[in-house]
Design a protein around this nucleic acid. Structure first.
Length: 138
DNA sequence: CTTCTCACA
DNA sequence: TGTGAGGA
């Protein structure tokens, strides 16, 4: 068994995750509803989170502090999932003319950069959902 | 006692 | 997001 398997192994209940992430059960469940995390379930329907899930929750909390809404965070976090490859393949399949100027991967990289920058000047410059809207309406 | 879903004076 | 109900 490798590290990758360990990180995705369902190990902790919501109680432990709450302490680890400093988030309320309500928030954690709400983020799951919005597909930002996908914890496994026990036979009794109890959530079981992996190290990856905890890491993601921590990232979500950071982005939230930086003024992003769930929609925006979802777009940024979509990376680590198997979506990148899909997007890149789809991008390659397109004829040059119809290719978007930037791939989703590149766009996300730019957004991260902007967020980091905005963070240096203070999140006041970043209004709620601004980045998400930019992303969606591109 | 903890977690789950659903709903909202 | 919080909170309470009602069940597991």
């Amino acid at each position: 068994m490798n590290d990758k398997d360990r990180r995705s192994m369902p190990l902790f209940g919501i109680g432990i995750v709450m302490k680890l992430t400093e988030l309320t059960a309500r928030q954690i469940r709400y983020y799951e509803e919005n597909d930002l995390i996908h914890p496994e379930r026990t036979k009794g329907n109890q959530r079981l989170f992996s190290f990856n899930d905890v890491d993601r929750l921590l990232e979500i909390k950071n982005y939230l502090d930086k003024g992003l809404n769930l929609a925006g965070i979802k777009l940024l976090l979509t990376d680590e999932d198997s979506n990148v490859e899909k997007t890149e393949e789809k991008e390659k399949a397109l004829p040059k003319e119809k290719k978007s100027v930037l791939t989703d991967k590149e766009l996300r990289a730019i957004l991260r950069q902007e967020i980091t920058e905005a963070n240096r000047f203070g999140k006041a410059n970043l209004r709620q959902g601004e980045l998400a809207r930019f992303f969606v309406n591109r």
